[in-house]
């Protein structure tokens, strides 16, 4: 596989992307999970699908769009979806979770219309839904690198604000923090990470990379920082392991990545149980 990576640019791009999303998806995933917003990632990934479908439709009509990677349009849709979720959450203050099915079904609905209008995009669709090892072009990679730099820098700069917002929103407000703005920045970051992760893991499975490593880490970690570090390690192992299996066995990487993440989760549950029994 090493020769393959050295020889083929697409494979190199996929692995570099894999290493990046193995860090940024679980990094934001920790905040998403502890804030009980796991489903937001799912909703946004479906909106991203609508963006990609829109781009494919437009590229059939206008030559200009054919030259642009669908990832860019997907990112625009994802961020717009995030903003719309926030709007819905403020409109339905007492039913905030309503925003998720509204955005999710809206995204799929719009996506399906675009796909039908474009007379389908059969060959590509599978890759978009479940990920692909050969899908990351050079311009995609540039965008993904840019997104990861932004995400890591913002999380680093706003770490303590994001922590306090996640742990105790009321305390954050009482400390005079501008909770709304910080949450807004956060949700845009989530949208960016989903767009970046989508080509490798696939739209249907992108949220799992943000939640499964965290679910495993939260079982055994002491403290928040350790939860983040373990989540990133688990995410990285899942992505790189998943890509390797996907390459050798010719499987969709989304599936292999998620299955490794599930395996890690089961292992941590077993380890925790075992250590409890030992201690008890």
């Amino acid at each position: 596989m090493i020769e393959g990576i050295l020889q083929y640019e697409f494979l190199r791009n996929s692995f570099i992307t894999g290493m990046i999303i193995g860090v940024i998806a679980p990094l934001l995933g920790v905040f998403i999970v502890v804030r009980r917003l796991s489903l937001i990632a799912d909703a946004l990934s479906h909106v991203t699908l609508a963006g990609i479908a829109a781009n494919l439709l437009l590229s059939k009509q206008f030559a200009f769009f054919a030259g642009i990677s669908p990832l860019y349009m997907g990112t625009v849709f994802s961020v717009a979806g995030a903003l719309f979720i926030e709007k819905l959450r403020s409109v339905y203050k007492h039913f905030q979770e309503l925003a998720i099915p509204i955005i999710l079904s809206g995204g799929v609905g719009l996506g399906v219309i675009f796909i039908s209008l474009a007379d389908g995009f059969n060959t590509d669709l599978f890759g978009y839904l479940f990920g692909s090892v050969s899908a990351v072009g050079r311009t995609d990679l540039y965008l993904i690198i840019l997104i990861s730099i932004v995400v890591i820098m913002v999380v680093f700069a706003l770490y303590k604000e994001l922590f306090i917002l996640s742990f105790d929103e009321e305390h954050a407000r009482a400390s005079g923090l501008h909770v709304k703005s910080i949450h807004f920045v956060f949700i845009v970051l989530v949208a960016l990470v989903i767009a970046a992760s989508m080509r490798i893991v696939g739209i249907l499975l992108v949220s799992s990379l943000m939640t499964l490593p965290v679910a495993a880490s939260i079982r055994i970690a002491k403290g928040f920082k350790q939860t983040i570090i373990l989540s990133i390690i688990f995410g990285e192992v899942s992505v790189l392991g998943g890509l390797t299996f996907s390459y050798y066995l010719d499987l969709a990487p989304g599936g292999t990545i998620v299955m490794i993440a599930v395996l890690i989760l089961i292992l941590t549950m077993a380890v925790k149980k075992f250590s409890f029994q030992k201690a008890g």
Partner: peptide, 8 residues
């Protein structure tokens, strides 16, 4: 269940 230490 929030994973934060007393120190954090």
């Amino acid at each position: 269940g929030f994973p934060a230490t007393v120190q954090e």
